[in-house]
Computed example of a mutant assay.
Amino acid sequence: MKVTESTSYYDNLEQMSIPELLENINREDHRVPEAVKEVISVITSLVEEIVPRMERGGRLIYIGAGTSGRLGILDASECPPTYGVPHDWVIGLIAGGDAAIRKAVENAEDDANQAWKDIQEYGFNPDDTIIGIAASGTTPYVIGGVKTAKENELLTACITCNPNSPLSQEVDFAIEVVVGPEFVTGSTRMKAGTAQKLVLNMISTTVMIKLGRVKGNKMVDMQLSNAKLINRGTLMIMEATGLDEEKARELLLSQGSVRKATEYHYKNK
């Protein structure tokens, strides 16, 4: 039996009080970061391969179905506003297309040929990296996608929560975060989903830092898409230059990013 489908350590959930439910869910959640810690060496090796590929123009492409697909889309969609990168640097694809982001698309995950078709809509780059995300490690959409990608000599990886899964057998780097049975048996949006989210955060954040999209500990290339981010950028410039708030804000808005504003200040000081 798959670990992700094995019976919960807890039973008679409907008889538990609300505090008991919450405490037990939290107790299980504590297992996740420890499981992620066990696979840091694999994540390290993967990121070391991704960075030079992206420096040469390759993309990072996530493929998944259901919760796993949505997590990939979430991570990909946050990269442009956070790091000021083009929308096609990190791409999230879900079985069933954009309609499946909100509602399940029947049988979409069972088509082993569709993922590669979806990837090809973004063109082909020999330096692309394809990461298949599937808690079970058995999703045909994901397995078919990474298998064909590897046949085309792309770098491939997976994030799964079952050991020795069929998905793991098809990729260059298998990240297997085994978090144990879910609190609600088989509900992989819980611990498995949390584990996948943590790993995706680690991969994309580390890649972006190594691509030079962070200075010190600041998101100096973030998009100024709302008042909160303009205020954050203003504070960054104040810290970096010693300017007062009004001048820092004016400089930020005129230059369009914290990086450009700071460089402009010191160049014209």
Rank of each mutant, 00 (worst) to 15 (best):
K2Y: 11
K2S: 12
T4S: 06
E5K: 12
T7W: 00
Y10K: 03
N12T: 13
S17V: 15
I25E: 15
I25D: 08
R27M: 07
R27N: 10
E28V: 07
H30W: 06
A35D: 01
I40H: 12
V42C: 09
I43M: 14
I43P: 01
T44F: 12
R53N: 13
R53F: 01
E55A: 12
E55H: 11
R59I: 06
I61C: 04
I63N: 07
A65N: 06
T67R: 03
R70L: 01
G72Y: 03
G72N: 05
L74P: 06
L74Y: 08
A76M: 02
G84K: 00
W89A: 10
I91A: 03
G96R: 07
D98E: 13
R102V: 00
V105C: 03
E109P: 02
A115I: 08
W116M: 13
G123Y: 11
G123M: 13
T129A: 12
I130Q: 03
I133F: 08
I133K: 01
G137S: 04
G137C: 05
V142Q: 04
I143A: 01
I143V: 08
G144W: 10
E151Y: 02
E151R: 13
L155F: 02
A157L: 03
A157S: 14
T160N: 09
T160P: 07
T160F: 01
P163D: 05
S165Y: 10
S165C: 10
Q169R: 15
V171Q: 03
V177G: 04
G186T: 11
G186P: 05
S187D: 05
M190G: 03
A192Y: 02
K197G: 07
L198T: 14
N201R: 07
M202L: 15
I203R: 09
M208F: 12
M208L: 14
L211Q: 01
G212I: 14
G212Y: 10
K215A: 13
K218C: 02
A227N: 13
I230W: 03
N231V: 09
T234A: 02
L235Q: 11
M236P: 02
M236C: 08
G242S: 10
L243I: 00
D244P: 00
K247C: 02
E250I: 12
L251Q: 10
L253D: 04
S254T: 10
S254Y: 08
R259F: 10
